[in-house]
């Protein structure tokens, strides 16, 4: 028993420590499972690195072999595209997520709240490929909106029409893909924010109401300040999810060269670039796709760690 880490419930005052085979085996099994998880995460980095090695080799000897004439030239537009789509999705999803979280935690009739939460969870349960199918079928409906944006706000680079002065005729643009992405990350942010809102100390809420605050004033003075860091970490986690989401962009976006405009065809994200090209890729191209996968892995890792760091800082402060 001494081999397994002494838990707090362990009887310490035993006269003769008994070592049981069953205990040894079982604790070793659980430990092995835990260590396997550590190995897996290390393995993700290691095996992706092994398979992207040819790209690193080609980059040092002859960058021209690589698509786009060099690894960095190839990956930069993709990183930008990934960030743009994720940021738009966040900008659209966050206000709605906050609204829904407030509605289900503080404003809806108490009896309805679990049911409403379940409805939002349904959004998360729907497979991403079905979102892609749905977005693809409806993308055309957005064309008049894009035309209007290009005509009236075309001087802003993100709404600029293309060289022929038109916008995408199919609606399969970065903006459409990002909007679908926003719907997909909405439930994740919502559920995280809702948890935070539900943790607001009841006494503070009731004190605010007792002092004559309206419900909105109570939310602004008690709920939102309490949840501020929780909200920012939820947004970061949503960002991580949006960065890695593949199908919405791969199916909806009619991809092409990088452009700042969101209403024309073009642009591409890392995940979608991999998904669209992987089935036919071989040789160096395969390594290229795996290497940009590694880049995506590193980016999402950083974003997720930042989110966890925010959470960790608050839990210390909160207690």
């Amino acid at each position: 028993m001494a081999t397994s880490a002494p838990a707090k419930s362990e009887p310490t005052a035993q006269s003769r420590p008994v070592v049981r085979i069953g205990d040894r085996v079982f604790s070793a099994l659980t430990l092995a499972a835990g260590i396997l998880i550590l190995l897996t995460l290390a393995g993700v980095a290691i095996f992706l690195l092994i398979q992207s090695w040819p790209v690193i080799g080609a980059q040092t000897t002859d960058p021209e072999q690589i698509t786009g004439g060099g690894f960095f030239k190839y990956v930069w537009p993709l990183i930008l595209g990934t960030l743009i789509s994720a940021v738009i999705a966040l900008i659209v999803a966050t206000p709605f997520a906050l609204g829904i979280a407030l509605f289900t935690s503080h404003m809806s009739p108490r009896r309805l709240a679990p049911f409403l939460g379940y409805t939002i969870d349904l959004l998360a349960a729907i497979p991403s490929v079905v979102y892609g199918l749905w977005g693809l079928a409806l993308a055309g409906n957005l064309v008049p909106v894009y035309r209007w944006l290009a005509e009236n706000l075309g001087w802003i680079p993100i709404f600029a029409p293309d060289a022929e002065g038109t916008v995408s005729q199919t609606g399969r643009t970065m903006l459409t893909a990002s909007l679908v992405l926003a719907i997909m990350i909405l439930p994740i942010i919502t559920s995280l924010v809702r948890e935070v809102f539900l943790q607001t100390p009841r006494l503070q809420e009731e004190a605010a109401l007792a002092l004559g605050a309206t419900r909105w004033e109570m939310i602004r003075m008690a709920v939102l300040p309490f949840g501020a860091s929780g909200i920012s970490s939820a947004i970061m986690l949503g960002l991580g999810r949006a960065l890695g989401e593949t199908m919405a962009v791969a199916m909806i976006l009619s991809s092409g060269a990088f452009t700042w405009s969101l209403v024309v065809t073009g642009n591409q994200t890392i995940a979608s670039e991999i998904a669209q090209n992987f089935p036919e890729a071989a040789g160096l191209r395969l390594s290229e796709l795996i290497s940009i996968g590694l880049v995506l892995f590193v980016i999402t890792l950083l974003v997720n760690m930042a989110a966890r760091a925010i959470v960790a800082r608050t839990t210390v402060k909160g207690n």
């Binding site: 992706l48 890695g244 995940a271 991999i274 989110a307």
Partner: peptide, 22 residues
């Protein structure tokens, strides 16, 4: 392990696929 499980939740699904393939 707790921390890495958290990190693992955030792995993009396509990267998980690339890992298995690699």
């Amino acid at each position: 392990i707790t921390f890495l499980v958290d990190v693992m939740t955030g792995i993009p699904s396509i990267v998980a696929g690339l890992f298995a393939f690699a």
